[in-house]
């Protein structure tokens, strides 16, 4: 009897350990997938829970005064974990939808991406209308034919956000919305699972190479807001945590959350 209980306890412990390391699907997510170790440091797990964040669904990246790192973060979030099947690349790519003039600091330049020789190239769409961008985003998310969708758009309503979230859950698609905060530094309500913000570090001593940034988790469902100092590797388009900052940054307090 005691041996059986010990075996059960060991199995439960092993299962917990796997969940902690992000190797198994999230139990509460139907489609599974976790990004708890997305940035290569366990310090994030204190803020996003032991089993990580459900990768399937709507995530937001709020652009600060620099859209370059925000684009890298969006691409990084879109690429985590999903593009590899057991037998190799599963053939699903990223769909990048750009609404013109939604982000005024140029367009995404795909030649900055690392070589994607193993996977299919991303599909890209450019439109002038937000309604077309949202429609295409929902259509792609519902189809389940791409691993991730990145949407550059202006502010959108709570109804649109909820529709996109449901479309993602239906087909197991990850959606990263790249949006700019309003002039009042206030974010419109959204049903996003997580909301991120990344800005370059203005500390001249630590940021001598220009690739140190402040990454902030400014809200979401079941997450604790926090901040990290991260390093962006431009050659691989990857982000890794250098060290954890205070859980609440002064700049994050300025962003008032609603919804």
């Amino acid at each position: 009897m005691l041996t059986e209980r010990l075996d059960e306890a060991r199995a439960a412990l092993a299962q917990l350990d796997k969940q902690w390391k992000g190797q198994v699907a999230c139990p509460d997510g139907e489609t599974g997938g976790v990004i708890s170790h997305a940035f290569g440091n366990v310090s994030l797990s204190r803020h996003i829970g032991p089993v990580g964040i459900r990768s399937v669904g709507l995530h937001e990246v709020v652009c600060g005064h620099d859209d370059g790192p925000a684009s890298v973060l969006a691409w990084h979030l879109a690429q985590i974990g999903e593009n590899k099947c057991e037998t190799g690349p599963c053939g699903k790519s990223v769909f990048w939808i750009r609404q013109r003039r939604a982000i005024d600091q140029g367009r995404f330049y795909h030649l900055s991406l690392p070589d994607l020789a193993s996977g299919p190239p991303p599909l890209m769409m450019t439109t002038g209308q937000q309604v077309t961008a949202l429609w295409a985003c929902e259509e792609v998310a519902k189809s389940g034919q791409v691993a991730s969708v990145i949407l550059e758009t202006t502010d959108y309503g709570l109804t649109a956000a909820r529709r996109l979230q449901l479309a993602c859950e239906k087909a197991g698609t990850r959606l990263i919305v790249l949006r700019r905060a309003q002039q009042t530094n206030r974010l419109a309500p959204s049903s996003a699972l997580t909301r991120w913000k990344i800005e370059p570090s203005d500390d001249r001593k630590t940021n001598s190479t220009g690739n140190i940034h402040h990454l902030s988790l400014i809200g979401g469902r079941g997450v604790r807001p926090g901040g990290w100092r991260v390093e962006i590797n431009a050659a691989t388009f990857s982000i890794s945590v250098v060290n954890a900052m205070e859980s609440r940054l002064p700049s994050d307090r300025a962003v008032r959350m609603r919804g």
């Binding site: 077309t132 259509e139 034919q145």
Partner: peptide
């Protein structure tokens, strides 16, 4: 099956886009 479904998705989006919109591979 995935290839066919992706082609159908591309068809649907292409037909919905306006004259100034575009869908492309980089």
């Amino acid at each position: 099956g995935g290839t066919i479904a992706l082609a159908q998705l591309v068809d649907r989006i292409t037909h919905h886009l306006g004259a100034d919109d575009s869908l492309f591979y980089p």
